[in-house]
Amino acid sequence: MEIVEAKQTRRDFFKFSALSLGAVVATPSLIAGTAHPGMSVYGGYTKNRVGSLAQLKKTGELDFSYPDENALCKAVYVNNEVKAYSIICTHKGCPTVYNQEKAMFECPCHFTKYDAKNNGQMVIGQATGALPRVLLEIRGDDIFAMGVDGLIFGRINNNVG
């Protein structure tokens, strides 16, 4: 899979963060979830191209890593929307398996389940919340990852690792 590195300066990032969600959506984009007021206090995310929208629509799911190669993520196409999540279960860190038919991320370790359509909300399980959402920007056919909302398992800061 092709990952286009589009390095952003810290200033750029804050420019992005400062945009209202509406403004971002107004560029033809789809964003997983709502921005959190305190999101990215540390910034430091790079903007990465993670794949093609046409391809995702065809296959329904798309693997990528973000914000670094140790952070497994998946974009899914559900309800005519693109959503993307860190797939590492926020219970004890097992990689979840995506069940496309049910649009559900399922953890094989202790059976935590997350709803792909509904911002990674926990259906049942032992994590303490939803899967972290990857914030996306879509320009034409390009899907870009912009940041991660929610702490990735095994990190004290999403930008380590």
Partner: peptide
């Protein structure tokens, strides 16, 4: 070493902890 991704089952503090 918190500069590293911790392994599965490793020590971790979630936001709600």
């Amino acid at each position: 070493d918190l500069s590293q991704q911790q392994p599965t089952y490793g020590e971790w503090c979630s936001e709600r902890m």
